[in-house]
C-alpha cells in the first residue's frame, strides 16, 4: 500500500531488534537481560509485522500480519513474567550490586 512508510517501519524494527540482542550480551544478570530483550525484541518484531501490513494493505497476508502482531504483544510479556518467576524459584541470585530485594525477604518467611 505505502512502500516508503513500510520500509521506514521495517528499518526501525530491525534497529530495535539489534539493540535488544546487544542488551542480551552486555547486561550482567538474568533479570536485566530478560527485561531488555523482551521489550526491544517485542517492539522490533511488531514493527516488522506492521511494515509488512503497510506493504500489503488489507489482503490476506496483511490481515494475518496484524493478527500475529496482536498475538505477540499479548503473549511475550506473559512468557517473560513466567520465566522471571521460574528463574527466581530455581535459585538464580540477583546481581551483586543490586540495591534491594523485597521478593526474597517475603518468600523466605
Amino acid at each position: 500500500m505505502n512502500e516508503v512508510l513500510g520500509t521506514v517501519f521495517i528499518v526501525i524494527g530491525l534497529a530495535f531488534d539489534f539493540f535488544g540482542c546487544l542488551g542480551l550480551v552486555r547486561l550482567p544478570d538474568v533479570y536485566n537481560r530478560l527485561q531488555a530483550a523482551t521489550k526491544c525484541v517485542t517492539l522490533g518484531t511488531c514493527g516488522i509485522l506492521f511494515g509488512l501490513f503497510l506493504f500489503r494493505g488489507f489482503t490476506a497476508a496483511g490481515l494475518k500480519a496484524l493478527l500475529c502482531l496482536i498475538f505477540i504483544i499479548l503473549t511475550a510479556p506473559v512468557s517473560a513474567h513466567a520465566l522471571a518467576r521460574g528463574a527466581y524459584i530455581s535459585g538464580v541470585k540477583l546481581w551483586d550490586k543490586s540495591v534491594v530485594d523485597k521478593y526474597g525477604e517475603d518468600i523466605s518467611k
Binding site: G20, L22, R26, N32, C40, K97, S98, D101, Y103
Partner: peptide
C-alpha cells in the same frame, strides 16, 4: 516506544548505567 529508547540508551552506554532491584 519510550521504554525502547531507554533500553537502547542503557545498552549502548559504555558503563551500562543500571542499579537493579526488586521492589514491592
Amino acid at each position: 516506544i519510550k521504554a525502547n529508547i531507554d533500553v537502547a540508551y542503557r545498552v549502548s552506554h559504555p558503563d551500562v548505567p543500571i542499579k537493579p532491584g526488586i521492589v514491592k
